[in-house]
Simulated assay, not measured.
Amino acid sequence: MINIRREGIILGKTERSFENEGVMNPAVITRDNTVHMFYRAVKKGNYSTIGYCRLEGPLQIVRRNELPLVSPQFNYERQGVEDPRIVRIGSVYYMSYTAYDGKNAFGALAISDDLVHFQKQGIITPVFSYAEFAELVASQEHLTDKYFRTYNKRETENETGEKLYLTDKNVVFFPRRIHGKLYFMHRIKPEVQLVAVNDLEELNRDFWEDYFRHLDSHILLRSRYAHESSYIGAGCPPIETPEGWLLIYHSVYDTPEGYVYSACASLLDLQNPEIELSRLPYPLFSPEMNYELSGVVNRVCFPTGTALFDDRLYIYYGAADQYIACASVVLQDLLNELIRHKV
């Protein structure tokens, strides 16, 4: 087993109106000794914006903005911009996030060259009804029947005639192009899927129709172990190491008391990230502390960002949908343990 060090709560809610319900699920990127954190801030009524704070070193907060940095602008995100992740590709910062309109959740993107001003690029995941999705994937024999479970089944419109679409969340980019292509993960329950394109303009309806017709060939991670038995999802942006892409993701399993969300680890091939090299057969860490066990949503450790200082990897995560917390591990210890558990 790996020695995980709980660093405790990093950030909590305040009396400010945009974050008086909770803070969680931060995007994190480092420059030298500075950690830039872009976090989901929730106000009462479950309306989300993205707040900002700056840390010197992995744990010391030195600045926290009094207003949101990114807020809803468009109808498709009118109730929230949620759960950001961030990477730098070349000179451009890519912030992916979930756009939520109160009924539908899509993967969306904003870009920046200075980490201050972000230009929204719109929805980048498919906008399909569940019925359209189910028809396109129906002939694929190797898909788990969980794609057709209740959590994905939705009518094409609600009682007031508003359109309802397939939920597609957890968009996470790889931090560089691989063989010239942009790679990103996304999640249609219950598995993690992978997209590779030359340019984001390729992501039109024809692209997604073909993608769904061959969905089984685009699945990156499938559930393997008991702690992943309900579903899994992308977590932190992949970390490039000599042994492969280190992926910290989240897993979910059901209990009589409800779902349990854990942080998990996998290793992907550097040249072809579609190939999973190894995976821990147990969670990297699961809810144990009071601030992870009890909150707005109980029993949640939801990892979304990392920072490497010296030999230690700091993993930032949402705790019980109320706090931002951190856990750390010696990076080489984690890689050595992963190498022991080849797929």
Rank of each mutant, 00 (worst) to 15 (best):
F285Y: 07
I248Y: 06
C264N: 14
S262L: 03
L194M: 13
C236T: 12
Y225H: 11
E191G: 05
S278R: 00
M289L: 13
K189P: 04
L284W: 02
A226P: 08
M185G: 03
R213L: 06
S266P: 04
D199L: 01
C301V: 15
E240T: 03
L247T: 08
V195W: 03
E209R: 15
N198E: 05
H214C: 12
Y282E: 09
G258T: 06
Y211A: 15
L221P: 09
P283Y: 07
S266D: 07
E288I: 07
S266F: 04
I248D: 04
C301A: 15
D216Y: 13
P256H: 00
R213I: 04
F285D: 02
N198S: 09
F309M: 13
L200E: 05
P303M: 05
L277K: 13
E240M: 04
S217R: 15
A234Q: 06
N204D: 15
T306P: 00
T304I: 08
Y261Q: 04
L267H: 03
H214N: 15
D199K: 12
V197H: 08
P287S: 10
V300G: 13
C264Y: 00
S251Q: 07
H218W: 13
P287Q: 10
I219C: 14
R187G: 07
D269K: 03
N298M: 11
D199S: 11
G244D: 05
W245F: 06
H218A: 12
V260L: 05
R213N: 10
L284T: 08
N272F: 00
G235T: 06
L268E: 04
